[in-house]
Amino acid sequence: MTAALFLEQVLNGLQLGLMLFLMSAGLTLVFGVMGLINLAHGSLYMIGAFFCAAAAAASGNFWLGLIAGTAAAAAAGALIEVTVLRRLYDRDHLDQVLATFALILVLSELTKIGFGPFPLFLDVPPILSGTVNLGIAHYPLYRLALIGFGLAVALGLWLLIARTRLGIRIRAGENDREMIAALGVNIRALYTLVFALGAGLAGLAGALVGAVQSVQVGMGEPVLILAFVVIVIGGIGSIKGAMVGALMVGVIDTMGRFLLPRLFGHFMEQSQAAGIGAALASMLIYVLMAAVLVIRPKGLFPAHA
């Protein structure tokens, strides 16, 4: 194993982690502030990717597509919050799971009706295509840009939560929703805004990742499962926890897929090692989640410690 390969894999892990962060930040925010379990978060990711692909194809400009995808997901989020989810805040989590699962089915079918059953094409923008020389290794420029994008959004989100009036309200809403309602904050509007923000982040992640993945119906569900693992590890409701959890999951998943088959290759036949290594690697993040929960039952950074 060369240093170049190792560096490339570390970068791959970071990039996967930062995209997972965009997904899980919205999910954990919505749960922390509104107490809502939203299974349809993956559908918003899908909506972001589809609108980005369609707008980019129509305009020939990836960046317009990116804006369209994010805006469409945020708008869809706001619409869902006002029409469906608003009725679920006082119900227990099982009702929320059931209703948002129904939303997955509805949104998937609507997407299929709107965009057709075949996967869409979305290419990386020309300015970000190709590879960049990092001295010892060549690395795809677009993936580097994704790392930069993820860090920038994380910083922006932190500034929003820590430094703005809206951020104060969001944090207050996490702690005591009755009290901030009593203090005259329009809690309904706040909830819609928070949900749209989370949806927009999911849509942004979908649009960014859509350029290197298949833009197809159902693309959100595998990511949704990973995002849930991330927020459980990080502590439900905590943005900081989502960041740490996402990076842990990204790096450990990538390194597991890379190193485990090699490890087994030292003492068994290659095709067998590949099979066992791949099977164990796919379990690794769930083992991590279980281990974290044994030591810290509420996750690494519980929002309501």
Binding site: L5, E8, N12, R143, V209, R257, S271, A274, A278
Partner: peptide
């Protein structure tokens, strides 16, 4: 001969780790 043999996860969407190994 085989330069390498790799199993990916069903439904996998990110192949960066595999592509890096193909390169090497």
């Amino acid at each position: 001969s085989l330069a390498g043999e790799l199993f990916t996860q069903l439904g996998q969407t990110d192949f960066a780790a595999e592509i890096a190994q193909i390169r090497a």
